[in-house]
Simulated assay, not measured.
Amino acid sequence: MDSPSDSDADHGADKWDRETRGENRAQQLDRNLSGLLQELRVVQTGVQLLTGFLLTLPFQNRFTMLSATMRWVYLGTVAASIAATVLLTGPVAAHRVLFRRHRLASVVRAAHHSALAGLALLGVAVTGVAVLIFDTVAGPLAATLAGAATAALFLLVWVVHPLYQRLTERVGETEQ
């Protein structure tokens, strides 16, 4: 069940879509699903390539040179990448399974949550890749710095900046 703030935001979006776009609820859901699937197409290829690349690493000669710690980092990175692959492709499977079942609202809601979780895990996987590469090439200190910088960049671009935009948007709305 949605929280009151989610529900209020949804009703505000519904009202805006009706008044500004002239959309009914079904049209809004169709547009939302279409937009979400388009966004997922962009990241699906990348996360699948990343996962495939990671799955080949243990079969490379230099893999045996990884320390025990870096092997655990590798396993965590692979797990995050596999989970991101599942979560970012899941909405397509859900849409296919629920196609023509009049469940579009639940498909859009679940796809939205799956995409957010998948993106978070993709950020973890890419951060892990940065740590592995920097550790192999330049050592543990460089790996730590690269991992921290990569994680900070993901948090800044994918979390802080969008949340800042939401906050400033709300402040601007209350002033009008």
Results as ranks from 00 to 15, higher is better:
1 M>C: 05
4 P>W: 09
9 A>G: 00
10 D>L: 15
12 G>M: 06
12 G>H: 09
12 G>Q: 10
13 A>T: 10
18 R>G: 10
18 R>Q: 15
19 E>N: 07
20 T>Q: 09
21 R>T: 03
23 E>R: 15
27 Q>M: 15
30 D>L: 09
32 N>C: 01
33 L>K: 07
34 S>N: 12
34 S>G: 14
35 G>Q: 11
36 L>W: 07
37 L>N: 13
39 E>N: 10
40 L>P: 02
40 L>S: 04
49 L>E: 07
50 L>W: 05
50 L>D: 08
50 L>P: 12
52 G>F: 01
52 G>A: 04
55 L>I: 00
55 L>F: 06
55 L>C: 09
57 L>W: 05
57 L>A: 14
58 P>G: 04
60 Q>G: 06
60 Q>V: 08
61 N>E: 14
62 R>M: 03
64 T>H: 06
64 T>E: 13
65 M>P: 00
66 L>N: 08
70 M>Y: 11
70 M>A: 07
71 R>I: 12
71 R>W: 01
72 W>Y: 06
73 V>A: 13
75 L>C: 07
78 V>E: 11
79 A>F: 08
79 A>N: 02
79 A>Q: 03
80 A>P: 06
82 I>F: 03
84 A>I: 03
89 T>F: 12
90 G>P: 00
92 V>H: 09
94 A>E: 10
95 H>C: 02
96 R>A: 14
97 V>R: 09
99 F>L: 15
100 R>M: 06
104 L>S: 09
104 L>A: 08
105 A>H: 09
107 V>L: 14
110 A>I: 00
110 A>E: 01
111 A>Q: 02
113 H>W: 09
113 H>K: 13
115 A>P: 00
115 A>Q: 14
115 A>K: 06
117 A>Q: 06
118 G>Y: 03
119 L>R: 10
120 A>R: 08
121 L>P: 01
127 T>H: 02
128 G>S: 07
130 A>I: 10
133 I>Y: 14
135 D>N: 15
135 D>L: 04
136 T>R: 15
137 V>W: 04
142 A>P: 04
142 A>I: 01
143 A>L: 04
143 A>R: 10
148 A>M: 12
149 A>D: 07
151 A>H: 03
152 A>W: 07
153 L>E: 04
153 L>F: 14
154 F>Q: 04
155 L>C: 12
157 V>P: 04
161 H>L: 15
163 L>K: 09
166 R>A: 11
168 T>G: 00
171 V>S: 08
172 G>C: 06
174 T>I: 10
